[in-house]
Nucleic acid binder design. Sequence first.
DNA 1: TTGTACTGTAATAATAAAAGTTACAGTATG
DNA 2: CATACTGTAACTTTTATTATTACAGTACAA
Lengths: 136, 136
Amino acid sequence: MNSGRFAISVHILTLLAFSGDEWTPSEYLAGSININPVLVRKELSNLRERGLVLSKEGKSGGSRLAKPADKLFMSEVYGAVKQKDLLGKGINSPNPDCPVGRKINDHLDNLYGDAEKTLLASLGKMSLAEFCKKFE
Amino acid sequence: MNSGRFAISVHILTLLAFSGDEWTPSEYLAGSININPVLVRKELSNLRERGLVLSKEGKSGGSRLAKPADKLFMSEVYGAVKQKDLLGKGINSPNPDCPVGRKINDHLDNLYGDAEKTLLASLGKMSLAEFCKKFE
DNA sequence: TTGTACTGTAATAATAAAAGTTACAGTATG
DNA sequence: CATACTGTAACTTTTATTATTACAGTACAA
């Protein structure tokens, strides 16, 4: 997975959760996270594809949650930002003449798959609403 | 965590497990993984610090497992290569004037900590010996 | 006692990935 | 039609990873 994207997405969603049904502009989000608004918009674009947020263009536009915060789970955020395998890539081009090299990536994939299932189960226990409560 | 290091370490340990009490040179390991021997030696150096392998210098030297493969668990390998947080860094410099920005990193840390505990529990179920059986 | 086959590690270069920036077209509101 | 937004492409900068070179140190074995 990509280093800071999970954190940025959670931060965005937390702010949107606190904004309720207001349309929050990306400049505002960028100000709290302290990163470039374009990065925020890229992340919003990704969250939108995953059905986690809605955006509205034009004046007085912005973004808001696409569903109530108690129906939105950290496992969904993980799924939205995940690109790489949890534990990193496998071996780039293992030696096919070696019995271990030949099969290592398949076995690593299984291991990673199992680990990820466990992780998703753990993240699935925390809703955005619950996460937001911690700020009170 | 660092992208391919977990895979490289598991690959190394698997090869060493198959070599039993032979001292295996890093050139041989590098050949199966198909990476530079210096990288292998760096990884070995790290695994050695963690007490997972032993190395012997000089002619007919090399490395071997520091303990039986059925006493060595994937959670130890994870611990050995882990540098970054599982889900990436927190937010670099969140805005301290925003109630969310001010506390987001603490709350993310907790979330990451819980997720990691779960992951370690999952990886702790797989011993190196068990992993090696898959190659037979 | 010397050549050889290793390890260990520093320094550096090459490559790739992530983050930040600029620029600008498009859209809704008032 | 001016304004305040989004959306996205293109580019630059920064940082992380991977690879390479170089060489000192160690143990074995003839």
